[in-house]
Amino acid sequence: MDQAEQYKAVMSEIIAKQSIILGPDMAVARAKKVSGIEIGDKGEVISISGDPADALKRLIDTYVELSGQIVKNALGSIFIRYPEIEQMH
């Protein structure tokens, strides 16, 4: 999987996890507001424009802004599966 695809997969997993934590309505609505990512109705990342690392940071920040650091901490298990991306964050 190339890096762009990895970023799409990570972001999709993050939105899926936030859908469990916050509920899908809120998780998808917040993700749709993040610039540089196109999100499908079910929360899947369709495309990323610009630097994917920046887009990932913006996505995480939008959830942290809403309910604090604890939602970021819950993402640890996702990053374990993507060590290359984890190193960059």
Partner: peptide, 26 residues
């Protein structure tokens, strides 16, 4: 539905949830 995590002093203490039988309400 939507959930709001309840965090006190950096620790998770619970969750608050608002739910409805109608779709796409909130």
């Amino acid at each position: 539905y939507f959930n709001i995590p309840l965090v006190i002093g950096g620790e998770l203490v619970g969750v608050l949830t608002v739910s409805h039988t109608k779709a796409g309400l909130y």
